[in-house]
């Protein structure tokens, strides 16, 4: 847990998840929520953490209204200030929020949020591959939907 030197006296090597966490720490409140979430998901127990967060929510909705309800529920638990400092429960809510948006997009292409599409796309691109199936595929499908709908200049 601590960054103590090991028995060999050598300094431990910085891993990619550690590096992400360090950059978020350096940036403080200026760190982007997606970067905070990515650092959490990339950490050693990150996959287990995201699986538990998403499993606790129950079976996936089969309608757009269901995804919207999930999105609204998650949004209620997101406090911007907590999110920017990487508070674990705010990050869990943000993960639920992002995956609810992904679920609706994958279902019928609905973008159930007013957040910029490119911002959502980045979230899906960065976080999606760090999740278990079926979320990995849902996020990939959602991203394809966004790409199909974006103007040619993008």
């Amino acid at each position: 847990m601590n960054m103590d030197r090991d028995g060999s006296g050598e300094f431990p090597t910085v891993t990619v998840p550690m590096a992400m966490q360090l950059i978020c720490a350096i940036l403080g409140e200026a760190a982007k929520p997606v970067d905070r979430l990515a650092a959490r998901c990339a950490a050693s127990a990150g996959l287990k953490w995201s699986r538990e967060v998403l499993d606790r929510r129950g079976p996936n909705p089969t309608t757009r209204a269901g995804w919207i309800a999930w999105k609204d529920l998650a949004k209620r638990d997101i406090r911007e200030s907590d999110l920017h400092i990487g508070d674990p429960s705010a990050l869990a809510a943000f993960l639920k929020y992002l995956t609810a948006i992904a679920g609706a997009l994958a279902l019928d292409g609905s973008l159930i949020t007013r957040i910029d599409r490119l911002e959502i796309r980045r979230g899906l691109t960065v976080i999606g591959p760090m999740l278990d199936e079926p979320w990995r595929e849902i996020c990939a499908k959602a991203r394809r939907r966004i790409d199909q709908g974006l103007p040619a200049s993008d």
Partner: peptide, 14 residues
């Protein structure tokens, strides 16, 4: 530079 560092780390994390 720091933002670029984070981007390139994301690609590995995923």
């Amino acid at each position: 530079e720091v933002a670029a560092m984070m981007e390139v780390l994301h690609e590995h994390g995923s």
